[in-house]
């Protein structure tokens, strides 16, 4: 069963561009995190990099899917891939997006736990994927699960900011707060199309803050 969300017509195409931008920013962060991992050999930058690679891939999948819809290329794609109908293509796109995004968030949450327990790692992933797979409404479950994971990440950054009082940790904290609010907005977008646009706008603010933080680090 495929669940769709309402997109305001005036927003057609802008969502594709925004998702591409999000994919680019998260990819940059991932590349830099891997650089730091290569220099330091520490696990946390590695997990951070892996999480952002997954998140970047999720936005690329979402951007591609939305581009197909906007450009009406989906019929040609269905024929080329021998898919029964457009719903199957949409479902594939949605599943790629949800799988990659949740994987990214799970890696981030695992990183915040500061543990090397393989059991914890596997339990988190198995439960999350099982929840998504067996959910009767994947859409709501995905955004609900994203919101829960983002809340845990937000708490981690709140604690980090309170402990070290660094302004740039505050930037990242606020960025994740915007991502959390955006995720909550997407939950309502199935009935109110404006929330879809608002969710993207909140995401834009979040990734601009993350990009500013990264630029400050690189330029130092």
């Amino acid at each position: 069963m495929v669940h769709m969300y309402l997109i305001p017509q005036w927003f057609f195409g802008y969502d594709v561009l925004l998702e591409l931008l999000f994919a680019f920013v998260t990819l940059l962060v991932a590349i830099y995190a891997f650089k730091v991992y290569k220099l330091s050999g520490e696990n946390q930058p590695l997990l951070f990099g892996v999480s952002f690679i997954f998140i970047s891939a999720s936005y690329m999948a979402q951007s591609f899917l939305n581009f197909m819809i906007v450009s009406e290329l989906n019929r040609d794609i269905c024929n080329a891939m021998k898919l029964a109908n457009i719903d199957t293509l949409n479902a594939l796109g949605i599943y790629f997006h949800t799988f990659f995004f949740i994987s990214g968030l799970l890696f981030l949450v695992y990183m915040t736990l500061k543990t090397k327990c393989a059991k914890t790692f596997s339990l988190m992933f198995i439960l999350a994927y099982a929840l998504l797979w067996f959910a009767s409404n994947t859409f709501y479950t995905f955004y609900f699960l994203s919101s829960v994971l983002l809340t845990y990440i937000l708490i981690h950054y709140l604690v980090a900011f309170v402990r070290k009082k660094q302004k740039r940790t505050l930037l990242v904290l606020v960025a994740f707060a915007f991502l959390l609010f955006g995720s909550i907005h997407f939950i309502f977008s199935i009935n109110h199309s404006l929330f879809y646009a608002l969710g993207h706008m909140l995401g834009l603010v979040a990734y601009i803050l993350i990009l500013i933080n990264l630029i400050i680090v690189i330029n130092k």
Binding site: Y32, V36, Q44, F48, Q166, T169, V172, L173
Partner: peptide, 18 residues
């Protein structure tokens, strides 16, 4: 590691990885 220490610490601290 030594030459890029400040850069590493900056990234780790600002993204809450410490």
């Amino acid at each position: 590691y030594l030459s890029k220490y400040n850069l590493m610490v900056d990234f780790v601290d600002s993204f809450g990885l410490g």
